[in-house]
Amino acid sequence: MKRSTLHAVCDAGRAGRGIVRAVDIASGEERLIDIASGNSQLERAAADAARIDRSAVADADGRTWFLDVCNPPLDLAIIGAVHIAQILARIAHLAGYGVRVIDPRGAFASPDRFPDVSLSLQWPDEAFAKEPLGSRSALVALAHDPKLDDPALAAALRTTCFYIGALGSKKTHAARLARLGAHGFGDKELIRIHGPIGLAIGARSPAEIAISILAEMTMKLRADDVWERSIVRATANTGFTPRS
């Protein structure tokens, strides 16, 4: 790999842009591919690999290439700068997410409570107008206050973000769905909201709840089909890992 290629890949990552490095394994020749292009066979294969977030070997233009997908970090938007958010922000960062915490209440969203986390003191709809959610985004609503959570959930439902979760009991969640339903969202849309949030691992403390949320986000991201999910669910319930 050329130094210039390494810098270009790192620059793309820092700018939040996806890029693919194609390497001809036989010769070591490399090409950087902008995933927005798609004119040649190689460029189309690279764009496909970036879309599904999987580096892979591909035959294109008569040669065998390794497509090294360098996607920007996943995006986690947390509504409510609460205790669970302090821990979720830290563990999600370790799992490769760029984390932003959105809460207009300055006493909550204080840099002392959230060192090294991007804090927004705006209301959720203002924050998302500035930095929208995308297909690599997750939205976690923890404020437990409909004034904050509901507009954020409504904004998320209008995007292709891969995970939407909301803190609250079954009763709270039913009331929340009724409110969002009254705003015109149908059952097919509302089922995208995970509530009560997190995998059912019996979490009690804020840290355990944060783990259950990150686990559910991971399941949605990596195992989003019925069979896989049932395996993951079984694993979560029994501690037994059938596929190791």
Binding site: L6, G13, P72, L94, A95
Partner: peptide, 15 residues
């Protein structure tokens, strides 16, 4: 520590 962090470590070392 995701893949971007590893490439950035490589970049830092070369610099």
């Amino acid at each position: 520590m995701d893949e971007a962090d590893i490439l950035e470590a490589a970049e830092r070392w070369t610099l």
